[in-house]
Amino acid sequence: MRTILQKQYRLKTFVCASTLIVCFISFNFAFVIAYSVNKRIIENQARAVSRSVSQQTSNMLFQLMEKGWTKKELGRHLAFMEAQEGGAAYKIKLYRKGGGKLDSRVAGVLPAGT
């Protein structure tokens, strides 16, 4: 590095080399930034979709409960919802208090004894 700095250059060479190096670095930096921003946008969109799906699922559950429901019917509704959001892009799972074993992540969200 020191050798490079101490070396005597023609002004023309120096300007050309400096411009190219700066362009190369700037271009790559722009690529990384743009990629990161887009990734974040996708993630945020996924979160919004997740919240929306859970809300719709919750509403669907209340409607089914009010008119009386079967497990089969529930399964059909859930499959319908999963198909509506683009196929197998996401999976919806339901957990109820007092029955079955909760996923450890789900257990952290629900109050103790659920």
């Binding site: 690529f31 743009a34 990629y35 887009n38 990734k39 996708i42 993630e43 996924a46 979709v49 997740s50 799906v53 859970s54 699922t57 919750s58 559950l61 892009a89 996401y90 999976k91 919806i92 799972k93 339901l94 957990y95 109820r96 208090k97 909760l102 996923d103 992540r105 789900v106 969200v109 629900l110 109050p111 659920t114």
Partner: peptide
């Protein structure tokens, strides 16, 4: 009171990979 929980699982990998390819 909490009666249960809804889990929504999404795989965003294909979308991100598509975005990477485009970029």
């Amino acid at each position: 009171g909490i009666r249960g929980a809804i889990s929504v699982q999404q795989d965003i990998g294909p979308e991100i990979n598509a975005m990477k390819r485009k970029f």
